[in-house]
């Protein structure tokens, strides 16, 4: 899922400084699961913003909404009937959600209430770690199900660098060396011979280097 983290409240207060009537919009997708932008976080952020503004003597009216998803047009339509009555929307969906809201509702400013960080997993409750960088060319079948692009700080495709020490990365001693993980996993699987496969120079055009990406499925388009 997409993992995000709430922005400091003072940053959000600065964004809405001149507003007296706003919407705080959550999303029931990824950001609900990572406790950054679901219905509960909408309640907490709204309460905090409202308290802060009352303390400043500038009360603010806040409407709390949580959309099924902010990255699908049909769910955005559910707020169209009243969105223009407000001066701004603070969206605590991922960056995609905030942008899609901005695209669909042209007359009202959209402000991000969270920072979108990475595609990752819930390791344990309250702990999320990165697993995928959406490079658009998955190699997990060669590397034992562990991604060298996202798990290796240098995104090396053929073995560890000299900075791998006792299974840890030189970038941060708390970070596992991605290639050590790959080695260990392939060993467990009895497939160490896969390490002899040379992965060719990567074609990054399928990743961010190729510009904003687009997928069209002709069988699904209307």
């Amino acid at each position: 899922m997409i993992i995000g983290k709430g922005k400091p409240i003072k940053n959000i207060l600065a964004m809405i400084e001149n507003c007296s009537k706003i919407i705080v919009a959550g999303c029931r997708g990824c950001v609900t699961v990572c406790s950054a932008g679901g219905e509960k976080e909408v309640g907490i952020l709204s309460a905090a913003l409202s308290l802060a503004r009352e303390t400043d003597g500038k009360p603010i009216e806040i409407k709390e909404v949580t959309l099924e998803r902010q990255c699908d047009p049909e769910y955005l339509e559910t707020i169209r009937s009243f969105v223009d009555e407000y001066e701004a929307v603070v969206s605590i969906a991922c960056g995609a959600g905030v942008q899609f809201m901005a695209e669909k509702f042209r007359k009202i400013p959209m402000y991000p209430g969270i920072d979108t960080n990475f595609i990752g997993v819930t390791e344990t409750q309250g702990v999320w770690t990165e697993r995928c960088q959406a490079c658009g060319d998955c190699k997990l079948h060669i590397t034992g199900g562990i991604c060298p692009i996202s798990r290796c700080a240098k995104s090396l495709l053929n073995g560890p660098c000299g900075g791998s020490s006792k299974g840890k990365c030189e970038v941060n001693p708390e970070v596992d060396c991605g290639w050590q993980l790959i080695y260990d996993r392939l060993k467990e699987l009895g497939k160490l011979d896969q390490l002899e496969i040379i992965i060719p120079i990567n074609d990054w055009s399928t990743g961010r280097d190729g510009g904003p990406r687009k997928i069209i499925r002709e069988d699904l388009t209307l």
Binding site: I9, K10, I44, L51, T55
Partner: peptide, 8 residues
């Protein structure tokens, strides 16, 4: 922490 941040 939230209360500190919002001036309460």
């Amino acid at each position: 922490k939230i209360l500190d941040e919002i001036g309460i």
